[in-house]
Amino acid sequence: MKQFLLLLGILSLLSLGSADTIAFNCNSNQVGGAKCKNWGTTFTWDRPSNRTSEQRTRGAGCGRPNRCSRPPYGSGYQCDEYPFKSVRESDRGNQVNRCVAARQNNAQGQALRNFYYSRGEFRNRGCHNQPPCRLSVAFSNASRLGYCQSRPNCRNDGNEYTRSGPARRDEVQESEFFRLASGTVLFAPGGARIGDVVYHVSFRNETLLEERDVVDGENDDDDDAVVENMQVDEDPIVAVVEGWMDENEGF
C-alpha cells in the first residue's frame, strides 16, 4: 500500500515503497516541468552541498538577483525551480522556473525538508536523512488550469521560464486521476491505487512561512518551532475518476 502526503493547497508527499511521491498544487511550477517539459515525475534526493545547490539554482535561472525580484513580481515572490535543487536530476540543466508567492514556496520547502530528514510528524516516514532517496510527484487543486488536465494545453502562460528565457512546452501523454475520501482529486502521473493513504499537511502558524525563507533540502538545522509547525492527517484514495470534474462528487 502506498502512503501519500498532501500539503493542503500546495503539495502532497506519497510514500510508495520504492519511491515516495509528492503531490503538488497544480497551480505551480512543477506541473509545467513534469507535464509540459518532459522532466518526468521521479527524482533522487542526494543531500547536495551548499555549493551544488547554488549551481543548480543558477542553472534554473533562480540565482540572485533573478526575474522574480523585478516587476511585475518583486517583494513577496520567490523563484521556484523544477526539478528541485535538492535532487540529482537537476544537474542535467535546463530546469524550469516560475515566480510564486513566498509563502507557497516556503511551505513547499519546509515540507520537503521535514520529509528528507524525517523530522516532526515525519519521524517515521520519509528519507530518514539517508540519501540517495527516490521520490515522485503528483498534483492536486487545479481544475481551472488548462495545463493541469489529463491531456494538457501546454501553452506557456507567461510565467514559465528556463535560464535562457521563456520555456517552450511539449504535449505529453494522458495521466490518471484519483479521488480521496475527503473528495479531493489527485492527479498522479506516476500512478496510484485505491487504498493508498494520503497525508494532508497543514501549518499551525502560517506566519512562520512568511517570516522565514526555507530551502528545500540543504541541511537539517531548522529550530523546533519550524520543524513542529506542520500537522499531518490521513486521507485514503477511494476511487479512480475521469478528471477534475469528479472532485467532491457525492460528498
Rank of each mutant, 00 (worst) to 15 (best):
G33R: 01
P132W: 12
T42M: 02
N94W: 10
E89Y: 05
S53I: 11
V137N: 00
G40C: 11
R125S: 15
G74Y: 02
E160T: 12
Y73K: 13
A142V: 06
K35Q: 12
R67M: 05
F43K: 05
V137S: 15
N105A: 05
Y117Q: 12
S49A: 07
T41Q: 06
S118N: 01
Q149P: 09
Q110S: 09
G120Y: 03
S118G: 01
A60G: 13
R92A: 14
L135F: 14
T44G: 02
T57Y: 10
Y82H: 01
D46A: 01
D170V: 13
E174H: 04
T44C: 01
R119A: 15
E81W: 07
V137L: 14
E81G: 06
C133G: 05
R88A: 15
P65N: 08
G33E: 00
S150T: 10
R56H: 07
N97D: 04
T162W: 04
E160Y: 11
G109H: 04
R123S: 14
N94T: 13
R151A: 02
L180F: 05
Y116P: 02
D157Y: 07
Y77S: 12
N50C: 05
R179L: 07
S69R: 08
N94V: 07
G109R: 06
S53Q: 11
R155I: 15
R88Y: 12
G59T: 10
Q104L: 12
G76P: 04
L112N: 07
F43Y: 15
S164C: 00
C99S: 04
N106C: 03
F84I: 00
A138W: 02
Q173S: 13
Q78L: 12
D46N: 06
G146F: 06
S49F: 06
S150G: 13
A107L: 01
R134L: 09
E160C: 15
R88H: 15
R168N: 13
Y82W: 03
R64V: 15
N106A: 10
A107G: 08
A34Y: 03
W45N: 01
C36D: 08
S136M: 11
G93H: 08
N156T: 06
S136D: 11
T162A: 02
A60C: 14
Q110G: 05
N38K: 09
R98P: 04
R155H: 09
R67W: 02
R151C: 01
N153K: 05
R125F: 07
N153L: 01
N114V: 03
K35S: 04
G76R: 00
F122L: 13
P72D: 05
S53E: 11
E171L: 13
G120N: 07
R58M: 08
R51S: 15
E176H: 07
F43G: 04
V96A: 09
F115W: 12
A101L: 15
N106G: 02
R113K: 10
E54N: 10
D157L: 01
P71E: 10
R47C: 03
Y161M: 10
S164K: 14
N153D: 14
